[in-house]
Amino acid sequence: MKVESRTVLGAFTFLTVLAIVYWVLVALHGSSTERSGITMLVFSFSAYALLGTYLLAQYLRRHGIPRPEDRFDATQEDGAGVIDYFPATSIWPVGMGLGMVFGACALVWGLWYLAIGAVLFFGAVFGWVTESDYTEDVLPGSDPDELAASHGDFASSSAHGDH
């Protein structure tokens, strides 16, 4: 996390200096109505500050113990174990996307599109947030007999993940 946070905080520092230089130069020589540029630069370095401090906090929280991906000498065994959930398929993103596209159509052709869009969008949000619950039931390991029957010994290696 050290390189990550330094990269982002470096960008923050550069943009802060840039914003100050730009502000001074506009104040001295520029058009008096030009306020958009400095506003956008301030928001840009603030965005970097937000992410940079978060990454720095993550780095400090580990008290100097690097993650396997931050160590030059790490081997694959150092990163052994479960990484994360990775859903293989899901129908909900397309529903949510369609909902947003209909919402966009509402901005062009009238508000009634928003009704369709909202139904699709919130329906998909509900399906999405509850999806992990019911896929938990069909995870490897939930029905050991069936798995053992269809997949032999392979199943046991990933069957007892710690989720």
């Binding site: 174990g81 990775f86 992990s132 392979f154 290696s157």
Partner: peptide
């Protein structure tokens, strides 16, 4: 369909187990 993804553990030559 969800799986718990594990880090690959095999030696580099091993390609048979998908």
């Amino acid at each position: 369909m969800t799986i718990l993804e594990e880090r690959p553990q095999f030696a580099f030559e091993a390609h048979e187990a998908s």
